[in-house]
């Protein structure tokens, strides 16, 4: 899976690409419009992450020329502007998602993965992690072949974990993933805990290994290590 990050803020581009590489993607970065334009001309990418404000051009133009060449490439816009018009325009010219800065890397990662899943297999793919099997199309979760009945948010939480295996997820990023950006209450962090507790219990009941680890109170980690 090849991902191109078009972002002029070098530090941010680095962080994104490091995170992506750790997640098993092949990741390249471009800091300018020109560089990005050349890269999309020369190589094929599964997903392109585009910042709208580039020093020498507009991200929209880049998306347009990209869509002319290869329509299967997924596009995620990252922008400092939280404007509805931009989102609509982005969707109109063929982008798949829109993230407003500042965002969580784990969120971006989850979106990229979900986008690639949708694009490549039209959503008819199964996510497997050891004994856990998730069917995104029907939103069903199986543990060792047994159906685990999860609530809507618990399902979303599990999927978020599965998109970010072996990564420390902050409580805030989980809360925002589940309830959207507007969630701004201290209670939300406690409720994240209660949801994780429930998810854990339901998975353990079906004989699943306990993959969820609490990391010092800053967040949670899903995985074996």
């Amino acid at each position: 899976m090849k991902v191109l990050v078009v972002e002029d803020e070098k530090g941010l581009a680095e962080s994104i690409s490091e995170y992506m590489i750790k997640e098993g993607f092949v990741c390249e970065t471009a800091g300018t419009f020109l560089e990005a334009d050349q890269r999309i001309y020369l190589y094929d990418y599964d997903c392109v992450i585009v910042d709208l404000n580039l020093p020498d051009g507009n991200g929209f133009q880049l998306i347009q020329s990209l869509k002319k060449m290869l329509t299967t490439t997924g596009v995620i816009i990252i922008s400092a502007r939280n404007a509805l018009e931009d989102k609509i325009k982005g969707l109109e010219i063929g982008s798949d998602d829109y993230l407003t800065k500042p965002f969580h890397l784990s969120e971006l990662n989850a979106r990229v993965k979900s986008l690639i899943r949708r694009r490549n297999f039209s959503g008819h793919t199964e996510i497997e992690f050891h004994e856990i099997l998730v069917q995104p199309a029907s939103r069903k979760v199986y543990v060792k072949g047994q159906l685990a009945v999860l609530s809507r948010k618990e399902y979303d939480l599990l999927l978020y974990f599965l998109s970010n295996v072996d990564v420390v997820l902050t409580k805030a990023s989980i809360a925002e993933h589940l309830w959207g950006d507007n969630i701004d209450s201290v209670d939300s962090l406690d409720i994240v805990y209660s949801h994780i507790k429930n998810l854990r219990r339901k998975l353990l009941e079906k004989g699943c290994t306990d993959y969820v680890r609490s990391v010092y109170g800053i967040g949670y980690k899903f995985g074996l290590s």
Partner: peptide, 19 residues
């Protein structure tokens, strides 16, 4: 607007750091 980008940077770095 300008503040958003450095904030994104701090967030990203912190997220990397906690890994």
């Amino acid at each position: 607007h300008e503040i958003q980008t450095p904030l994104a940077l701090i967030n990203a770095k912190v997220e990397q750091l906690i890994q």
